[in-house]
């Protein structure tokens, strides 16, 4: 019988699923592995900030005004070493950066999640339904793209006021259109394939076709976009905070730390802005490099 598995079949049988193949081919490049390592350090540091930061920079009992504006490497009154120096309130910059990273990442990831949900749903809907639904959604996307992102976010925040939640809302409004456009483009390609016709023919409900068949096959390009958009959201949030309308002073992100330090720049005390700036740069560049590598790896020809 032709269906009998031959020796050759048994060999292919142990071939790994798509997820494992993806991870393997991602790690084939040295730079990708380095980026992944740096990113893991950043994420772990941000998540476990209360345990690994030398001090809690927002616990007034732990900081002392006497330690204000110490250069990197100075020793504190209590004997602790400030590796990256301190800021105007006497906070350890290293600890502030570790805590700030968490807030920046939180804003970036939350934005990606919500903008992704809104944008991808609308994009898939536009591609699947076509006709006037498609036309309406895509004109909205065009409208969104015709305004500079920072301007829209500024106006929204001026209206809503400071706060992590508000920043996320503003960034979602700015970013959903990118997801919608990418999702639609990917879904249009998949939509024309015969397996979607087969699903229609098998009377599979529309929501299931969209989420079980269309979405998973559009994911490669969406993952790439989401990664790069996290970086973009973090940079945008830093800009907004630098301008003083982003996160509140009680929850300082990297942008706010840079902004705080800018007051001392002219006094030659560069480290207060410099180190948070480096942290921001490393984070955003690492995220973008990972996104680029994902784009290469998720290319259907390499899978």
């Amino acid at each position: 019988m032709s269906a009998k598995p031959s020796k050759a079949n048994d060999k292919t049988f142990r071939r790994p699923g798509p997820m494992l193949t993806l991870v393997r081919s991602f790690c084939r490049s040295w730079s990708a592995r380095a980026c992944l390592a740096v990113m893991s350090v950043i994420v772990l540091a941000a998540v476990f900030a209360p345990w690994i930061a030398p001090q809690n920079p927002y616990d007034l009992a732990q900081i002392s005004m006497l330690d204000a504006m110490l250069p990197p490497g100075s020793r504190s009154m209590s004997g602790m070493i400030y590796w990256l120096g301190t800021d105007g309130q006497g906070r350890d910059l290293l600890s502030a950066i570790i805590y700030g990273l968490g807030i920046s990442l939180e804003v970036g990831v939350l934005t990606a999640i919500f903008a992704g949900i809104v944008g991808i749903t609308l994009g898939l809907l536009a591609a699947y339904r076509g006709g006037w639904v498609d036309a309406a959604i895509m004109r909205l996307v065009d409208l969104q793209f015709s305004f500079p992102a920072i301007l829209v976010a500024l106006m929204l925040l001026a209206f809503m006021g400071k706060g992590i939640g508000n920043v996320v809302v503003a960034l979602v409004v700015v970013e959903w259109a990118t997801y919608a456009r990418t999702a639609r483009a990917a879904a249009l390609v998949e939509r024309s394939k015969e397996y979607i016709e087969a699903a229609i023919c098998l009377a599979i409900p529309v929501h299931r076709i969209v989420y079980r068949h269309l979405l998973p096959n559009c994911l490669p390009s969406l993952i790439v976009i989401a990664t790069i958009q996290i970086g973009r959201a973090i940079a945008l949030e830093a800009t907004l905070s630098f301008l003083g309308i982003g996160v509140p002073v009680t929850e300082p992100s990297l942008g706010l730390l840079i902004s705080n330090g800018s007051n001392y720049m002219l006094a030659g005390k560069l480290w207060v802005s410099f180190w948070p700036g480096v942290a921001l740069l490393v984070t955003v560049v690492t995220i973008n490099l990972i996104g680029d590598r994902l784009r290469d790896v998720l290319n259907p020809r390499s899978l």
């Binding site: 798509p18 394939k193 015969e194 397996y195 016709e197 023919c201 098998l202 998973p216 096959n217």
Partner: peptide
């Protein structure tokens, strides 16, 4: 729905006729 299921299609290209995931 029952009527729709009564006619099923076999496609030309077996490479794109199935959800690869």
């Amino acid at each position: 729905k029952a009527a729709r299921l009564k006619a099923q299609m076999v496609f030309q290209n077996p490479w794109s006729a199935m959800n690869p995931r």
